[in-house]
Computed example of a mutant assay.
Amino acid sequence: MPISGMTGFGRAEGAHAGWTWAVEARSVNGRNLEVRFRGPPGFETLDRAAREGAQARFQRGNLTVGVTAKRSEGAASVRVNVEQLERYLALGAPFMQDGRIMPPSLDGLLSLRGVIEADDAGLDPEVQAEVEAAMAASIAVALDGLAAARREEGTALLGVLHAQVDRIGDLAGQARDLAAGQPAAIKARFEARLKELAGEAATEERIVQEAAAMAVKADVQEELDRLRTHVEAARGLLASDGAVGRRLDFLTQEFMREANTLCSKSQAGALTAVGLDLKATIEQFREQVQNVE
């Protein structure tokens, strides 16, 4: 399976036994897999379905799975809260006795807050289990939709990442060509340094030390070889299946380490400019890698 992103959205709806519901699953970038669930009261067991479903499909990302549900009025029995009704009548009795208000009508009393209550306690356990199973199936559908959205994001990212890796490879090639011309620059700089040291009556040992130090500082062959190896590794990861985001993130750190060393060792302005361009491209690559699962 090609690479996946970590941002996406999935939705599913369902109905059963007088219940209707909607499931929404969304995710954003995250170093690890974190799942948060929000569901209707009385259906806490759905949390497990959401977490296990997410773990089966994803390895990274911050996921939120939400279920909103409603039971139709005809599916729930109702009762009159007599105690609450008596309280309203007792409060209004003095006003009716002195004629300040008319006796209330039945529909008026029943419309008062708390007089009519829905009784959900009588939901049959078998029906409850059927509704939960149907909701869990909708959660799976929403998670499948989220996975598809993340794969679409991965497809879009793939072209961008390939282009950035190619750019890194091109810049490393330019750096290699420029580094080949560094010996001449080192020679000129060493000759100038030699004249300075000669003016100080420098010993031959001191001169040799200076030459060795300049040669070591200017040698970037090792960094260029590692950059080439990292480019090949990045292309291999982008062509592989599964979650490669963590490995790409680590590889980006290695890219930047070599680019920093290249700039610090550079003895030529042109090579330094390429090194800075290389660092900027690697940073852009790093930002995109943060979106890869």
Results as ranks from 00 to 15, higher is better:
2 P>F: 04
8 G>H: 15
9 F>L: 12
14 G>L: 00
23 V>I: 14
24 E>Q: 10
27 S>V: 14
29 N>W: 13
29 N>L: 05
47 D>F: 07
47 D>A: 15
57 R>G: 03
58 F>S: 05
65 V>Q: 06
66 G>Y: 03
70 K>N: 08
74 G>C: 10
76 A>Q: 00
77 S>Q: 06
77 S>T: 15
79 R>P: 00
83 E>N: 11
83 E>A: 09
86 E>F: 00
89 L>D: 11
90 A>Q: 10
90 A>E: 10
100 R>C: 10
112 L>N: 02
112 L>E: 00
113 R>S: 12
119 D>A: 03
124 D>V: 03
129 A>C: 07
133 A>N: 03
133 A>L: 06
140 A>K: 12
140 A>E: 10
141 V>R: 12
142 A>N: 12
142 A>S: 05
142 A>D: 08
144 D>N: 15
145 G>S: 08
145 G>I: 13
148 A>P: 04
151 R>L: 11
153 E>W: 07
154 G>E: 08
158 L>V: 02
160 V>K: 06
161 L>P: 07
164 Q>F: 08
167 R>T: 10
167 R>S: 00
169 G>W: 03
171 L>Q: 09
172 A>L: 01
177 D>F: 13
191 E>C: 03
197 L>T: 08
202 A>E: 11
203 T>V: 10
205 E>S: 06
205 E>N: 09
205 E>V: 04
208 V>P: 06
211 A>I: 09
221 Q>M: 09
223 E>W: 03
224 L>H: 08
227 L>I: 14
232 E>L: 09
239 A>E: 11
240 S>W: 00
251 L>S: 12
254 E>C: 10
254 E>S: 05
259 A>R: 01
268 A>Q: 10
270 A>I: 14
270 A>D: 15
271 L>T: 00
272 T>L: 02
273 A>N: 08
280 A>Y: 04
282 I>N: 04
282 I>G: 14
289 V>Y: 04
293 E>D: 08
